[in-house]
Amino acid sequence: MEGFPLYGWTMPPDQPPIHVLRPGLFTTIQDLGRYGYQRFGVSVSGAMDRWALVVGNRLLGNPDQAAGLEITIQGPELLFEQALSLAITGADLSPTSNGRSLPMWTVIPMPAGSRLQFGMRRQGARAYITIAGGIDGPLILGSRSTHVYSGWGSLAGRALKKGDQLGVGLGGTMSAQYVGRALPASHRPQYRTSPTVRVVPGPQADRFTENALQVLVGSPYRVTSESDRMGYRLRGADLIHRTSADIVSDAVTFGTIQVPADRQPILLMADCQTTGGYATLATMIAADRSLAAQLSPGDSLSFVVITPDKASDLFRSTHAELDRLLPPRSVSDSRAFL
């Protein structure tokens, strides 16, 4: 976006330590999103798999909201001009450095002049590169997240391209104190291509026929190729409205399952708009967003309905479990990451 002031740079960008040699399929800068401006139509955006991003940040001693790179299916090739430490979390896309295989979910030192590459996709769809100090860039309304639909965020609101140079936040390039720190193997997620996610009934569930929720949970839905950070178009059994699919626009959120007139559900994801005009049948719970974030077209998704109280319990237990494993840098930071 032209004319945006570069708020929030913490380091002069004259010596950006990271060079983008190849951008990968779709690599964007993401943090925990842009809150407080949904009433102005500003999408929250942020990492699709927030849990994976936060694990990387906590391993490195970064604040939860530090920005990292979200990589989709096929990773970039990066050259590090200066020594720094990083962690790679989320999908396993076979990261290597100068021919050596790199461990996932572990703080790794990257010497000056080293390269990071990715290879075969082993599991999941989205990996995160978090860097000690965080990826730097302009803070726009409190976030560095890229929202390509509105052209907002770092790098003029677009995905990485060849020749880009990325800066790192203050202190990042000299921090080595957490090298070797890792998420215990027993807590590393196994991403499946046909997970079951939990949902709560949505605000317009009563606009569907009585058995629509049973139909939703009755058989899996396939993730179609019309799927991106904004939402996944799913294909499966028809979800039938009582009358019309159209409603007077209402707020929607990451996880909303809306159903247009073609009776096939759309699962809204991180870059979704703030409001929508289709009846919503259910909302995927926040604790299961990571499972959905790791899907790609051709994978499938099953649903199970739980109560909002149970969803709240899972929200809290997911945070408490990670706090126990990897405490946040600041205990005063009570902001939820999901």
Partner: peptide, 9 residues
């Protein structure tokens, strides 16, 4: 009505 575990409409 609940929108999610984090939202009420």
């Amino acid at each position: 009505v609940p929108l999610s575990e984090q939202g009420l409409t």
